[in-house]
Write a protein that binds this DNA or RNA. Structure first.
Lengths: 242, 242, 242, 242
DNA sequence: AATGAATGAGCGTTCATTCAT
DNA sequence: GATGAATGAACGCTCATTCAT
């Protein structure tokens, strides 16, 4: 326990505002849908830094530049803000990883692509990632069950990618379920410590995790190098489109 | 983010009461230091399941079978309970890992021993581990700084073990700091998903993590097997003593 | 010590509701700034009768016909209510006395005017006077220092009026500072025992204090009579305007 | 309102520990009747500085060097401490003043003696005086009525001394009741501002109050001087005895 | 004579939420 | 679309007091 990564983002040394700063609300009223965005941003920031239960509706409203009552025009309740945030994150994460996996062919490459995208996504949306992950227990029964189901689905994709790699002989593992937990934990943890202002780029960190993951699944250095090259070729096509 | 492991223990399917159940307080009064233990147990359980901020002093008191005011005979404040819990956990964890490391000779074996003990300790004291780790941000400035310093020290031990393995040529890593984060995250995560009633023993899970860690640091299967054998020889001596 | 006057108003026999009765809150909600006034009235009454520390926010709320939480829309804290009350009282008292002093010419008349106005003001706002005076120690450091400074300023005005009277030969005193304390204590004490339903009018009581004060400063009966006449002439002009 | 005198002792500039400091209790147990004295001293000091309601039994116990529960061997309740303190003060004050009055003959001298003794007593026992005076309202109905009766008796003695002086032609007053209030208020107030470390001795302050009081009752400077001389003669006999 | 452990009531304050405007 | 005013419940904590030892 208690190594740096797993702490809340703001307790780690640099605390990068990856999702962007909370805008101090100007005093205009009648601002419409911008208000909703301001609420979302404020909620992500505050939930990430202090936790859901330590964040009051007042604090969110104040960070969003509105009165507490105004939040209730956009969200039914405090929990609804959290649910929206977590749903959005899970949906976008799942889509991004799915797209990355579809871009390559072999099981090892697909796993590597998933790991890479998972890491990049968690580095880019560190606060939302952390909140989605750590505040599952703050949900009431129904939405919690729903989110856990999505999380379990997401995990299962990784496990079956590992299984496919084992089946075609490129990877090895004694227990695929334990390996899946271990791999996702370390990749998810990137959201806890990655600092865009630090010495390592997010791309580099993602590659390092591909190395670690494939290595822990018994892949040879040559296989790892080949997979990384394949991923970067794919990326270049992507990058132009974006 | 958002795969099963990183959720709070109670949101995961099994939720094993690893630290023992909370005793329903009998109606005797004037129970002395047992009261303090009851408070500790109740606090660990509730902080782990609901989080620090979602746990009221009334809830702790009720779980400990006393009145809320009685807690203040044993602790100065709610935060003092948390600090005590976290300090105890960090101290015992550090001692346990240190002792394990001292029992073996080579850098690779020392790292493996540290990983093993870390995993076992997190499996045995899953709730305390989770609370120590996830509620750093609930602390006020001073105790937070103190705990973060301890955590950073602890992390640094792992990093220097990796470095030593790299230096003597048995291990390889592109970035020792990233590797340290990744390794500790996956080992710490055991506290989130391990269920003693599940199919895998804690010893088995610990061995699997040694395999994963050494593998991700480029160790050969032979080295891994040798190191595991060495660890188990050492353990047997220990076990007899205890 | 321990003669009737210095006791709290409600311990004295009659307990006149000089500042007006506390209105029993009707059950309308959303009353706006009237709510603030109701809080003020309730607080003055209760602080005066029971003391600041013996008055709970629940008691104030109940006397104001609202819920305790509603108080916090109008005041930051319990102390803020007290500070507001004391500030208001000191400001109005100072202005009133200043105006009275400016209406006459000679030093003896100015002192008499100050004494008269001080007594009248303390008779009219007996509860606020008592609370301002007796609950200085209930304040935290900062506001306490501020209030003490105002009180010291106010005292100094009286001392310098006495000094001026001594300088022009109309008054005599062995120690102007002791005289100032003594005079203000007896005039302030009017707030403790004056009862508007009693046999003496407030105007009569004020005149009596002018007699006592000037007498204790060695003024001749003729001077006292002259000064009182001058004051009453001035008053008549005032009265028509109001 | 709010001139210095009427504030609590500790808010006034010097705050003299007239009743002596609170001894830090040594850690011996089983200390017997010394404990009661320690409680009394602690209670006077704390009630005077913070007020009865702002003083907890814990604070008294701590200042007396014992545990809160030990207080209940010596006093039935918190109120009983206050009652004891107030009763003692009133009894000793009344006796002292009575003795002083008996030492002289003429009505004016008797009043002067009473004023003098009242002032001296309030200067010597400032804290007890202040608590007796200001915490009448903290008492429950029965003891409050008892104390108010004593206070009224005490006041009546002064009023009848004034009346006697008026009757024999040495003193004048428009309203003896108002004069009594005013005189006692200013003399009692000495407990609020007198500082034994200040430039004026308590004897001097007492004489000044005799001057003020007799002056406000129309006594000629010659009468005042004569009365003071008479008092001082009497005192010299007293002083030798003490 | 004094304590350590505990209680039940109540403290000042904050919470998420409602709703007429 | 947003606010100002209010609520009822609950918060962490302190209170005076009790009582077996």
């Amino acid at each position: 326990m208690a190594e740096k990564p797993t702490a809340a983002p703001d307790t780690a040394a640099p605390a990068p505002p990856v999702d962007g700063p909370v805008p101090e609300g100007d005093s205009d009223t009648r601002r419409g849908p911008e208000t909703r965005e301001a609420i979302d941003l404020a909620a992500i920031e505050l939930f990430a830094n202090r936790g859901y239960h330590a964040t009051s509706m007042r604090a969110i409203a104040s960070a969003a530049g509105i009165q507490p009552a105004a939040i209730y025009h956009w969200y039914e309740s405090k929990e609804a803000i959290l649910i929206g945030l977590q749903d959005d994150f899970m949906e976008e994460l799942t889509e991004a990883v799915e797209a990355a996996v579809d871009r390559v062919e072999t099981p090892a490459a697909k796993l590597a692509a998933a790991v890479r995208e998972h890491v990049v996504f968690h580095g880019l949306h560190a606060r939302a990632a952390f909140v989605t992950d750590s505040e599952i227990r703050a949900l009431t029964d129904d939405p919690r069950r729903t989110l856990i189901a999505k999380r379990d689905d997401y995990q299962e994709r990784f496990r079956s990618l590992i299984e496919a790699g084992v089946d075609d002989g490129t990877l090895k593992t004694s227990e695929d379920r334990v390996a899946t937990y271990a791999i996702l934990l370390q990749c998810t943890g990137v959201a806890l410590w990655f600092d865009p202002r630090g010495p390592l780029s997010l791309d580099r960190v993602a590659d390092l995790h591909v190395e670690l993951v494939l290595g822990s699944l018994g892949a040879s250095p040559e296989l790892i190098a080949g997979v990384l090259a394949e991923l970067h070729d794919g990326e270049q096509g992507e990058r132009k489109a974006a």
